[in-house]
Amino acid sequence: MELSELYREVILTHATHPHHYGEIENPDKKAHGSNPLCGDSFDIEIKMDGDKIAEISFVGAGCSISKASASMMTEMARGKTVKEFYDLLDKMEKLVRGELAEKDTEELGDLAALAGVSAFPIRVKCAILPWKTLKNAVEDDG
């Protein structure tokens, strides 16, 4: 069990300086996600352009894994179509469970840093929470 694998520099930076943190004006869709057991709680808002996620933001509180995951997710999901997001979500879930092929991992950029989570099964749900919340936001129909 290597802690430095979990708390990589890029994760700590995203956790302390999260991207797209805040609210957007007149969001088209939104969702709230929480993991009451550890006290993580996120709200995600998006603006759609056709079937593209045009704008995205999040607010909330959580551990560094969940917060960094949320921050990196906003970077990755912005500009993607819903289908592309689902594809990414699938890869992300495999990544944190240690089931993603190396070549797919490389494509993920910063997000690949979350691979370390797979050695800490209890923390997998922290990494996934923002993604599940965005999925709910995408599927939110008012």
Partner: peptide, 8 residues
């Protein structure tokens, strides 16, 4: 966050 403290 408490959860990070717990893991470490």
């Amino acid at each position: 966050h408490p959860h990070d403290i717990g893991t470490i």
